[in-house]
Simulated assay, not measured.
Amino acid sequence: MAPVAAALYGGLWITLFYASAAMPNHYTAMGAVGAVGLFLWSRQSLRTYAGVAAGIALATLMRPNDGFAIGLPLLLAALLVPAWRGRGRVVAVLGGLAAGALPWAVEAYVRFGGVRERLTEASEVQGDLRPLLSFVHHLTVMDGPLLCRPCDSDGIRPVATEWWLLLLLLVTAGLWTLRRERAPQSASEATRPPATTLTLLTALAIALPYLLLVPYAAPRFLLPTHALLAPTAALGLLTLVGVARAGRHRWVGAGLVGVVLGGHLLVQVLLAHGNATIQAGARDDWARVAEVLERHGVGNGSRPGARTDAPCTLGGNTSVIPLAHVAGCAPGGPADGPGDLSALVLREAAPPHWARDWPRHAVPGTYSSGWVVHVRP
């Protein structure tokens, strides 16, 4: 079953796109799967405890909010559920959380002045975390964009919802199979909750903050949830394959399953290719913007080895950080005035009143139209 679960997770376009990227969500997903799986291992030992701690530490180090979302259900299970109660599990979960959160806490005091200050600034950067409903936003980003912020103008393409529908079908079939096949052999096993219960609760715990608190969406946010649901979905898929092969028209059933899976993989590959193409075009745009900036005395452009003695600060209305990096400048924050900005890079937007007299230079040949550079005189 494990290879099937890995194939379901690895076949998602989000996984194909992000697994090799410097983004935390895939690594958080792997830490979550490892921690939950070893927590549920029937024969606990120092190795399994170490594995639980390592998985939670990895997830927490990569993304602290996800790490605590993983650790909380496991900690409650280790404290409250008799079948899983034990000092070893409790210490493993708490140790993993502490190990992963310690670097974050140290950095919070060094760079932000404290944990509360860092959380406050993080909330502001995320657009003010608050109770809301983002379910529809996460449906819309299943086919991209990579970051939907804001999501008001993004629609839902029916073909992109196929994974959610397939996931619902497979998880339901997997749960039905587990319930049908569960036959306790002893009184202790009769009182033991199904392992899938804790897995699903952990998957839900990771997803809920993004669905209820974050005012925007990105498809990678739910990668850990997809990874934790994959084993149950894999069991459901194997069950459906078995049912199809056991029927009178076995080849028809097997063919139908094959067509559905083939269509699913085709959609995922096309989505991965489409989003990769868009991202490649965006990166080319950043280089073209940097070249225009360099021609007008700002930054070092995108030429390898280029240098400039004049420091520069870049402002704009989109992609300011990557643009500044490519141009060799520092990114400027939101400003009500020119401050120390060397230039403004705007896309499909008019300059603020204080920059209307700055020389305007259009950026030619871009993948996305509307890039304009305003250089401070």
Rank of each mutant, 00 (worst) to 15 (best):
A280D: 08
G332A: 10
A50I: 09
L237C: 09
L170W: 09
A280T: 13
L201P: 07
A217F: 08
A287T: 12
V141W: 05
V372K: 00
D285T: 01
A19Q: 03
S42I: 07
A29R: 00
R248I: 11
T161A: 14
V91G: 01
T318N: 03
D285M: 06
H138C: 14
A53R: 01
S42C: 09
E189P: 06
L261M: 13
V81A: 10
M62I: 03
V372I: 13
L94F: 03
P184D: 04
N317K: 02
R130M: 07
R376E: 07
P359H: 14
E181Q: 12
L40C: 12
F68N: 00
R116F: 10
G316I: 02
S123H: 10
G113V: 08
S20Q: 14
D143F: 06
A280P: 06
V257S: 12
L74C: 02
H361Y: 15
S42A: 13
R87F: 04
L178K: 03
L293Y: 09
G88S: 02
L61T: 00
V267G: 09
C148T: 10
G88P: 06
Y18H: 10
G365N: 11
G95Q: 03
Y9T: 06
L16E: 04
A203V: 12
V106R: 03
R245N: 13
R250M: 08
R89C: 01
L235H: 03
D128M: 06
L38W: 07
A205G: 06
S368Q: 14
L198I: 08
D284C: 08
R87L: 14
L16V: 07
T225Q: 09
A50T: 00
G31P: 02
H26R: 05
G95E: 06
W354G: 02
G332D: 14
W371F: 07
L38I: 09
A227V: 05
G263N: 09
R149K: 15
V320N: 01
D154T: 15
G370T: 14
C329K: 04
S42K: 12
H353Y: 11
T366M: 04
T308F: 08
R192W: 05
A99F: 03
P351S: 11
A22F: 13
E124A: 15
A77C: 10
T191I: 10
T197Y: 13
A29G: 08
Y49V: 02
R376A: 10
G88M: 06
L178Q: 09
V171Y: 01
R63Q: 11
R295V: 08
V267L: 12
R118W: 11
G86I: 00
T366N: 06
R130I: 07
C148W: 03
R303N: 11
G96M: 08
W41P: 01
T161Q: 15
P73L: 03
R192H: 04
L147W: 15
A32R: 05
P322R: 07
G55K: 00
C151Y: 12
W164P: 04
V136H: 14
P158G: 11
H137Y: 13
T202D: 08
E121R: 14
A343F: 01
D309H: 13
A83S: 07
A349R: 11
L40D: 03
G127W: 02
T277P: 04
T177R: 04
A355E: 03
H374T: 06
L75N: 04
R376H: 13
H264F: 14
D152V: 15
F39W: 03
G144N: 07
V326K: 02
S302P: 05
L229K: 04
S188T: 15
